[in-house]
Design a protein around this nucleic acid. Structure first.
Length: 466
DNA sequence: ATGTCC
């Protein structure tokens, strides 16, 4: 027998994890002399007419499971709508047309209620980065993104900006000792957080083997554009934090749900693509019905990934503050890759997906970072429904990673950092400031969506190396 | 973004 993978089984409509484990178990022990194709043919026959296999010793076991757990058709087929649901675009002048096309396609889904495109938008899988989509009773894994719960956290510290100059060496040491980037490895000190005790790890079978990695990766950061940085923040007059308008030292982090969230995203993206059949060019926008078992499971595990991402930031901030003997005055944090249940002004209940977009309900605080040498903004939402209560999640990439590599040298980047007075630990030319759109332009394009409450300037930045 | 193919 050729090696039978869960992927092969998904293709022929075997989506249930328990069912797939059963099939692989039986196949490896009892169908050794079948070719992979013979076996798949048999499995298709069982799927199509399980009743006729109930008398069979081995196939009967699979047939029973098919009848019990996954009765009915294994997928549904849908067409796009003739007319798109409404979609406002902010800062459209600076958005590539491919991202706009992706957004348009999303608003043609039969489950689509309304869309919005943020000024930092660029092309992604399924929904563009910077895309916001409200749906009716459906959740689209690719409209949340691969890094579920990717988020920002800002701690405003009880120190003036003078602390950054006085304690540069200690801050660098603390960043080296208490942050960890990249796929491999972990912090040296084992981290603890209540999220690791979540019953969801026990409820969803495929999460069980992921918990060990989640324990190891707690309090770490990812790669790419993720960072942990100290800088100064100048708060505006009458800011909603209730703090005096002056400069403070602040800690800002950008990170997500690591391997745990990636595995969850991957799993349910596959389930959605296998069970919700759309015209080919829209297939990546496959959804899970919120009333289905898979939809409920995605919601549960997406929430766990979001909580885990939050826990990572909490550990990062707690570790660094403790190492440096600092006290937090305020914390502002927000997911920017996630889905929420929300209500539109006319009372319609919707699922709002934000894939690289900051929640910006009336009075809601959020953080919009620029790049390693440019400001991040502390913003307060104005609750604009046309934007689905959202704002951008950053400046947005102006260049692909490859283009950024080709157009910038290490020494030119060092000069840029030095001119900006920013110290960088790790990092790559792929994340050089010129690879990003101008944050001031992007902020200006969404002045109708958010008010500026503070301006943060990075000073000592740590990012992933290579 | 990511145990970049269970």
């Amino acid at each position: 027998m050729g090696n039978l993978r869960t992927k092969d089984l998904s293709k022929i409509g075997y989506h249930n994890d328990q069912l797939r484990s059963l099939v692989i178990g039986i196949a490896s022990k009892n169908y050794k002399h079948h070719s992979k194709q013979q076996l798949l043919d048999l499995l298709v026959q069982i799927k199509n007419d399980p009743e006729s296999f109930l008398g069979d010793e081995l196939a009967g076991k699979i047939a029973e499971k098919v009848i019990g757990k996954v009765a009915g058709p294994s997928f549904k087929t849908y067409d796009l709508m003739d007319e798109a649901s409404p979609c406002k675009i902010y800062g459209g002048k600076h958005i590539e047309s491919s991202a706009k096309k992706q957004m348009e396609l999303a608003t043609l889904l039969p489950v689509s209620v309304q869309g919005a495109l943020m000024p930092d938008a660029h092309m992604g899988f399924g929904l563009p980065i910077g895309g916001v989509l409200a749906t009716h009773n459906a959740v689209i894994p690719y409209a949340v993104g691969m890094d579920i719960g990717c988020r920002m956290a800002l701690t405003i510290i009880d120190e003036t900006d003078g602390f950054l100059r006085r304690s540069e060496y200690q801050i660098k040491q603390a960043l080296k000792n208490w942050t960890h980037f990249g796929m491999e490895g972990s912090l040296e000190v084992r981290q603890e957080h209540e999220v690791l005790d979540s019953p969801v790890f026990g409820q969803i079978p495929f999460l069980k083997p992921l918990r060990g990695k989640a324990v190891k990766q707690l309090g770490t950061s990812g790669g790419g554009n993720h960072f942990v940085e100290f800088g100064e923040i100048e708060l505006a007059e009458n800011n909603s934090l209730g703090l005096p308008a002056k400069k403070y030292t602040a800690l800002l982090s950008h990170s997500g749900s690591r391997g745990l969230g990636a595995a969850i995203a991957k799993h349910y993206t596959q389930v959605a693509i296998n069970t919700c059949k759309l015209p080919r060019h829209a297939q990546q926008l496959a959804w899970l019905d919120m009333d289905s078992e898979a939809g409920q499971e995605y919601w549960l595990t997406m929430t766990l990934a979001g909580d885990y991402a939050r826990a990572c930031h909490q550990r990062i901030h707690a570790n660094l503050l403790k190492a440096l003997g600092l006290k937090a005055l305020r914390v502002v944090e927000n997911h920017h890759n996630f889905a929420w249940k929300d209500t539109l002004a006319d009372g319609r209940q919707v699922i709002i997906h934000r894939k690289g977009a900051t929640p910006a309900h009336q009075g809601e605080l959020g953080i919009i970072p620029g790049s390693m040498t440019t400001p991040a903004y502390l913003v307060m939402g104005k609750g604009i429904e046309g934007a689905l209560y959202s704002a951008s999640h950053g400046a947005g990439r102006a260049m692909s990673r490859q283009k950024a590599k080709d157009s910038m040298t290490v020494s030119a980047m060092k000069k840029m950092l030095s001119a900006a007075g920013v110290k960088l630990i790790g990092g790559t030319v792929e994340e050089n400031p010129q690879a990003y759109k101008d944050i001031e332009t992007v902020i200006e394009a969404q002045h109708a969506l958010v008010d500026i409450q503070g301006k943060f300037l990075p000073r000592i930045v740590r990012m992933n190396k290579e």
